[in-house]
C-alpha cells in the first residue's frame, strides 16, 4: 500500500511537471498545444535509447531527452507561427499522433509496438521496491521544484510580460517593438522541453515505454489539470495535477462499491466523475482553484501609487 501511494505520488509529480510546461505555452503565451504527449514521447524515447542502446548515465539521457523535446517544440512552433487557437490545436494534435505512429513503425529505432523495456532506473538493482519508489519520489519532487522556479522566473520577468502580451494581441506586440515570432518559438521550445523532461522521468520510473502509452488522453489530463488548478498560475498547475491524479486513482476504489455496474461501466464512471468535476469548476470558478495573479511586476513604483494593488507574489 505504501508503494502504491508512493507510486501515485510519483505519477502526480510527473503530471505536475507537464502542467508547468503547458502553462508556459498556453497559460502564459496563449498558445494552444494539444500535442503535449508528443513532446513527452520524444523525451521518453530519447532518454530510453540513450541509456539502453548507448549505455550512458540516466542524467545524460534525461538531458538529451529535454534537448530533443526543445528542438522538436521549436520546429513545431516554426511551422505553425501563423496559426492560432483551433487551427493550432488541430495541428499540434496531429503532431503528437505523428510522433506516436512513427514510434510504432520505425522498428529499427524504437522496437515498434513492442516498446523498449529494461530502461534503467536509479539504483533499481540494489534497492528494494519500497526504497526505489521513495528515492524516485525524492528525485522527481526535486526536479519539480527546479522546474517550478524556472517557470516562476519566466512568469515574473520582462520576457514573461511579452508572452502575456502575445496572448492578448500578437499584432500590437509588434508595434511595441517585439518580434512576437521569436518569443512564440521560445515559449513553445521551453514548454516542450519541460514536457520532454516529464516523459523521460516516466520512462526511467516504469522501465518500459511503448507507443500506446502516449495517447491524446494524457494531453487532456494535463490540460484538465491546468484548467482545474488555474490557467496562468504555476502553483495552480501543481495543485491541479495533484487533484486530477488523486481523483483518477481514488475513484478506482470507490467506483466498484457502486452496485449494479460492470467493471467497464465503472471505468467510464471514473471519467464521468472527472469531467463533471471540471464542469463544476468551470461553472463556479472559471479561473481555477488558484487563479492567475493580478499582475506580474518584478519592480514596483517607489511611491505608493493609488490604484496599484499590493504585491501578491
Amino acid at each position: 500500500m505504501v508503494i502504491y501511494l508512493l507510486s501515485i505520488s510519483v505519477v502526480a509529480t510527473i503530471y505536475a511537471v507537464m502542467a508547468l510546461g503547458l502553462n508556459v505555452m498556453w497559460g502564459t503565451a496563449g498558445l494552444v498545444n494539444l500535442g503535449l504527449v508528443g513532446s513527452a514521447a520524444v523525451g521518453a524515447y530519447t532518454s530510453a535509447l540513450v541509456t539502453t542502446r548507448m549505455g550512458l548515465p540516466i542524467p545524460v539521457g534525461l538531458l538529451a531527452g529535454v534537448l530533443a523535446a526543445v528542438l522538436i517544440g521549436a520546429l513545431l512552433s516554426l511551422v505553425t507561427t501563423r496559426l492560432k487557437d483551433n487551427y493550432l490545436a488541430i495541428v499540434t494534435l496531429g503532431f503528437a499522433e505523428t510522433i506516436r505512429i512513427v514510434a510504432s513503425n520505425e522498428i529499427w529505432l524504437t522496437n515498434g509496438t513492442d516498446g523498449i523495456s529494461g530502461i534503467p532506473g536509479p539504483l533499481r538493482a540494489v534497492l528494494t521496491p519500497l526504497q526505489f519508489n521513495a528515492l524516485y519520489l525524492a528525485i522527481v519532487v526535486c526536479l519539480l521544484g527546479l522546474v517550478y522556479v524556472v517557470c516562476q522566473r519566466i512568469l515574473y520577468s520582462p520576457f514573461g510580460r511579452v508572452l502575456h502580451a502575445i496572448r492578448d494581441d500578437d499584432v500590437v506586440v509588434g508595434v511595441a517593438g517585439k518580434n512576437g515570432r521569436v518569443f512564440k518559438v521560445q515559449a513553445f521550445a521551453i514548454g516542450s522541453g519541460i514536457v520532454g523532461l516529464a516523459g523521460g522521468l516516466y520512462a526511467h520510473y516504469t522501465s518500459f515505454i511503448a507507443p500506446d502509452l502516449f495517447v491524446p488522453l494524457i494531453t487532456l489530463y494535463v490540460k484538465l489539470s491546468l484548467l482545474l488548478g488555474g490557467v496562468g498560475n504555476n502553483r495552480g498547475a501543481v495543485v491541479g495535477a495533484a487533484i486530477v491524479i488523486v481523483v483518477l486513482e481514488s475513484t478506482r476504489f470507490l467506483v466498484p462499491l457502486i452496485p449494479y455496474i460492470s467493471p467497464t461501466q465503472g471505468a467510464a464512471m471514473r471519467e464521468i466523475i472527472l469531467s463533471a468535476g471540471l464542469l463544476i469548476v468551470l461553472r463556479f470558478r472559471l479561473k481555477g482553484l488558484v487563479p492567475e495573479a493580478h499582475d506580474h511586476l518584478t519592480v514596483r513604483p517607489q511611491q505608493n501609487t493609488a490604484g496599484l494593488r499590493p504585491a501578491t507574489t
Binding site: 502575456h164 502580451a165 517593438g177
Partner: peptide, 27 residues
C-alpha cells in the same frame, strides 16, 4: 491592446532596450 495586462504593465511592455526580455536574463 492588452486587456489582461495592468496599465503599468502595458506601459512597461513598450519600454525599449530591456535586456530582461531575453530568456537567459529572465532566468
Amino acid at each position: 491592446g492588452f486587456p489582461r495586462l495592468t496599465v503599468l504593465e502595458s506601459l512597461l511592455l513598450y519600454g525599449a532596450d530591456q535586456p530582461g526580455e531575453s530568456l537567459a536574463a529572465a532566468l
